[in-house]
Design a binder for these strands. Structure first.
Lengths: 209, 209, 209, 209
DNA sequence: AATGAATGAGAATTCATTCAT
DNA sequence: CATGAATGAATTCTCATTCAT
């Protein structure tokens, strides 16, 4: 006797197929038949698992947020309190997400409009949470005098927009290795917030005498 | 006496209506009936002017590029040779475009996929031209030692992505006046390219003695 | 001052274009725009000359009957009273017509249904006249004992059907020269009516002694 | 207990309705809505069964060929080797087909142009097979000296054209009983090929002495 | 006389969804 | 649980025709 999988076997394939079709054609032009076909699943099975096209899209976007949230949490858990370190961790998580399969389509950014109001609201709440992670880290840095940017909101938007845009041009088979890409975007982010590292404590103590 | 418009009167309304519908619902979900209705034009008239839905989208995106290209040319014509000045001019043009009605939807970025291959290629060619304007200015700045960024490509992508993203959140009726927004994004752009102004020649001459 | 042509210059080209389009696509699938385009005539000009699609079709079929009727009259005028000679003349005229450009499409046979009742009736009246020519000649032959066929109606239908069918397979650029084709179909027609030439009177009188 | 029909119940009605509409109006002028309506079937059901208008036409023509082929096979199976007998059997089958509901419209002859190239080719291949049946029988008769026609191809075309034309004028409710019609067309066919029955062998042997 | 612009009616077709089994 | 058949609503688009000039 084997344990039943939590989700039917078709789910993963279905979500992957939906991601491809929605990304390639857009929600409105994508056909639910093609999605089922691509997933090698009967149309009826799709309707058995999901309530309809919209719900499938929502499940897709929601699962993407799951993955991204988890990645952010993991990244932050691995670093200390330093705002620069934390910002770097967030940027790394976002760059990894945007350069990977789950985030390579900007479905969350563009197809939220195709959800019904409740789904749309729920998605935006999750997105706000994701934005807040950046906002808080940058605010911390500013408070501590490490980030000198006079416009933290613009800086945050710029960083996130830049990372999101990676999905538009980055191809994993290209010549830029991911670690190098991460380094560069972390560097850019720190530039944008105008990061000025603290002078080591010992020196300052000395000079204060 | 004013020059007669080159295009029939319905065109402007039609393109405006199409922009709204495509932006709100996405190409696939937008109905050509609704577009005609919104433009207060008969469906037949729409087909009289444009060959179909795709062609309407193409005309829309193409006209947007016309406006943007013109804005860039005008902006560059008003400044001198200094790379920082020129970059500032380009950023201003892009911010203005993205915060205005023509560029407030990111249709060019997301709905190019809905064009046929020829249209898609034509659009991408125009987009490449637009990108090149930034690339050249940044390259100039780097060559002259004014822009210290080690990764001009990433810097360029970041600046453009940030400006593009303005369309996602900026509302003209909001509290940020456009000139201030421009100032901030110009500042961010110069930060990103790590602009270091040349020391004025006279001072340097004096100190060199 | 030159005499104005009875029909505007576009007429011939228009009818020729209509014949091709109707024959290739069928009345319902043919586009009046394509016809005008093929005739290098503006759509408005077409409507200026003809009342509409149906009227164009009628003019086309009517003109075809003009040509065929004329051909039959000419053929009969060239021969004497002998039923076999007259039948041969009619067959020749029909074979020539069906193998030529005007009759190469069987529009009169198939697209009469697309005419309105009055037009349809008028066309059928002309077709009946054409049929009667054959009927009378065959009846003469039977009366005179030259045609032995017991079923003159079937014989007539067979001859006409066979000649009409030429349009389906004959190609002028093929290897069968038209005169030979005519000979063969005349021969077939005489076989079908079971033609038995009269024995010359003098000989019979001599032999009867 | 009867065998379940291989095709859904709507198919028969749909094909019959399509035959009527296509025959009365022509492919291009016939409306798929009217066909569905006449068959008392929803438009969606029609599309569920057939891929579209063209496919419906193809199914119709193909089914007509099925019926005709079967009729020819049955007719030939019931007679011996004698070319005259075999020709008579083929003529009977064709006259029966053309005077019956399946063949009363000459759709195969006129609307093949409305098929796509593949369908068109497939149909023509079947038509060629049907033609070959006549060709072979006539060739046999000529070889055996029974058919004296000097132009077997023309004779064949004439016979087939004449039988096909029956669809244009024959009405089952008319005064000609079908068996009589068949006799007359068999007689005509034998006349056209110039059939000369073999003199019974015994007599010839006797007389040759 | 001649025409380019405009249009309303209707065409084929697609699609998400439901339902009986 | 799972599915194949069935469907109504909506979509894009074409076309013969008209009309103002």
């Amino acid at each position: 006797m084997t344990a039943a999988p939590l989700r039917p076997p078709g789910h993963e394939a279905l979500l992957a197929a939906a991601r491809v079709e929605f990304a390639e054609r857009g929600y409105g032009s994508a056909s639910i038949r093609d999605i089922a076909h691509r997933a090698a699943v009967s149309l009826s099975a799709l309707y058995h698992y999901y309530g309809g096209k919209q719900e499938l899209l929502y499940a897709l976007l929601d699962e993407g947020m799951d993955v991204y949230d988890q990645a952010c949490d993991d990244a932050l858990a691995g670093v200390g309190d330093d705002p620069a370190e934390r910002l770097a961790a967030l940027v790394e998580a976002l760059v990894r997400f945007r350069s990977g399969p789950r985030g390579s389509s900007q479905l969350e950014l563009t197809e939220g409009r195709s959800l019904n109001p409740e789904q749309h609201a729920a998605l935006r709440a999750r997105q706000a949470t994701a934005t807040d992670r950046f906002r808080e880290v940058i605010a911390d840095g500013v408070t501590q005098g490490l980030f000198r940017t006079p416009e933290p909101d613009d800086a945050r938007r710029m960083i996130i927009a830049a990372c999101n845009a990676i999905a538009q041009w980055y191809r994993p088979e290209g010549r830029t290795p991911l670690p190098e890409l991460i380094d560069r975007y972390v560097g850019l982010a720190l530039t944008v917030v105008e990061y000025r590292p603290r002078v080591p404590t010992r020196n300052r103590a000395v000079s204060s005498r």
